[in-house]
Amino acid sequence: MPRAGFYTVESGKISFRRDGNWYSDDERIDNPRIALLFSQSIKRNPDGSYYLQVAEERASITVEDTPYVVKALEDDELGGFTIVLNDDTREPLDPAALEVGNANVLYARVKGGDARARFLRSAYYHLSDHFESDDGGRFFVILKGHRYPLGDTPASNA
């Protein structure tokens, strides 16, 4: 009897794309339990590449932009937000750590500042009610009575 594990999917190319979905070759993985398992199993090699590790099984993956996405925002009842990531973890939104990347994509620093998470459209629109601009064309997010500038993203995809 063959061992259970990644041997069935290892033959395909597994990727996490900027739309927040997992793919095997070019077919989207629609099973939410598998997608969650994959999102909770992401690890990073010292060279910056990524892999999945479930028990002792490992499979190389391609991460198109970031290994995490902000899939939702929850009001924290204190005037701020809690972000919900694709691995179902929740973290307080740090408005000072928001960054704007290419094509005006919004990112947040997550996992203690060790990683970035790309905002999916629904989360971005939820937060956009708190955006403001000044006469100089600079944008800010207003939370808890404070105004936080939206800075440019550094070149790193960390």
Rank of each mutant, 00 (worst) to 15 (best):
H146Y: 11
F6C: 01
G5N: 13
S122R: 08
E10C: 13
R138I: 00
L150V: 10
D25R: 12
N102E: 15
F119Q: 05
E64R: 01
F140A: 00
F131L: 05
L93A: 07
R121D: 09
S156G: 13
R3G: 02
S41P: 07
L78R: 15
G112P: 08
F131K: 04
R90E: 15
E57Y: 03
P95K: 10
G113N: 04
Y23H: 03
F6P: 01
E10D: 15
G48N: 05
V70C: 10
I34R: 14
Y51W: 11
P154V: 03
R44P: 01
D87Y: 04
T66C: 07
A59K: 13
I61H: 05
D152M: 04
S156I: 05
L85M: 09
A155N: 08
T82M: 12
G137W: 04
H130L: 02
L120A: 07
S133I: 01
L78Y: 09
L78A: 14
E132C: 02
D47P: 11
A59S: 13
V54K: 07
T89Y: 03
D75I: 00
Q53H: 06
G48Q: 05
F16S: 01
D87A: 03
G136S: 14
P67N: 01
R33P: 03
I142N: 11
T89A: 05
D30C: 02
L36E: 14
F139D: 12
L85G: 06
S11L: 10
G151P: 00
R28K: 13
G151D: 01
G112F: 13
V110A: 12
L73I: 06
L150S: 11
L85V: 06
D65K: 07
G101T: 11
A108Q: 15
Y50K: 07
P154L: 06
V54D: 10
Y125R: 13
D65P: 00
G20P: 13
L52C: 00
K13M: 03
A4C: 00
S156L: 07
W22I: 08
S122N: 10
R109Y: 06
D30P: 00
D30V: 08
D47W: 04
M1Y: 11
G79L: 02
V100H: 04
R109T: 07
F139E: 13
E56D: 10
L52I: 01
P95V: 08
R44A: 06
F38D: 02
T153A: 10
D25H: 08
Y125K: 09
A155M: 03
R58E: 14
Y148S: 11
S122P: 04
G151W: 00
L150P: 06
R90V: 08
Y50R: 05
I83F: 10
G101R: 07
R138C: 02
R147A: 05
T8S: 09
I42N: 02
A59I: 13
N104C: 11
K13T: 12
G101C: 07
S122D: 12
S60F: 03
W22Y: 07
L143D: 14
D30N: 07
F139M: 11
